[in-house]
Design a protein around this nucleic acid. Structure first.
Lengths: 152, 152
DNA sequence: CCGTATCCATTCCGATACTG
DNA sequence: CAGTATCGGAATGGATACGG
């Protein structure tokens, strides 16, 4: 997909794409956010991504204000990465996608829910879209309003 | 990103990526799901995507069981596309990403929320991750359990 | 109108070598 | 350890021409 095609677009989904960039970035943010793996080599090891790619993605994520550089947690002189508020807000997206994958893309049969509530150690229930009055909404209950000429 | 790197992976996020494929696919599903644009040319027009790309994505989405071919709504002899249950389940992900984009990637200043509750015509509140007891969870309240050797 | 097949340019990714 | 620079192969995307 050509960047310019969607980058300048007014659609929130397109802007989100422009900011996040690609799936590597989402995986990286996931590690930093949920995995407490905040250092270059830790992320690199976990993801198995090439170092130059990781480097480029981290730089972009910092530019976009999704991550920020912080002093390493262990006091060493190297960098660590922490999510900003904007990055932390992404966790709803990650949870939604994670749950969708668990429910709809079952791989090995033994695989179980992998997201747990820390306080109780219990699985996190499926995320729901709710109206202001609290009722659960489905796709047919929503309408996508496109003020300008731009769609989706 | 090499497909094989994540496709065979046991991580739900990776499987989700393998199934959805790319951002074009997400945009396509969005149109079909929320935009009631269910025919080839309608989607093509809205998204401005090349026809060969759209063709390939639609085929993949059908293969993955996210969309299915249906008779065209107007009774013409051409195809239409409808979301399956699996595809409909994706709408939570789309809403999450849409809302994130609205909140965190504001483009033109005039842009407002574009997702409304059909019944009341009111904006849909921000989606929340909740524990079983209903309390709202943040990133720090979650733990990602990795049963096997595979991460993320 | 609904796609598919081909061509070409661009981009992406991984491996490797290198710097501080 | 934490990156950056470069290179070659692979995949992607758009335009176009073509077939059902």
């Amino acid at each position: 997909m050509k960047k310019t095609c969607l980058a300048g677009n007014d659609c929130p989904l397109s802007r989100a794409y422009g900011a996040v960039g690609d799936w590597w970035s989402l995986l990286i943010v996931t590690r930093v956010l949920l995995g407490e793996r905040r250092r270059f080599s830790e992320i690199q090891e976990d993801l198995g991504v090439a170092r130059n790619i990781l480097s480029a993605r981290l730089r972009k994520l910092v530019e976009e204000g999704i991550l920020e550089k912080v002093p390493a947690p262990d006091g060493s002189l190297y960098q660590g990465y922490a999510p900003t508020e904007k990055g932390r807000a992404l966790f709803k997206v990650i949870v939604a996608l994670l749950q969708w994958g668990e429910t709809n893309c079952r791989g090995s049969p033994g695989a179980t829910s992998s997201l747990v509530d820390r306080r109780r150690g219990r699985p996190v229930p499926a995320i729901e879209v709710r109206a202001a009055d609290g009722r659960v909404l489905g796709p047919d209950d929503l309408r996508l309003v496109t003020p300008g000429t731009v769609k989706a």
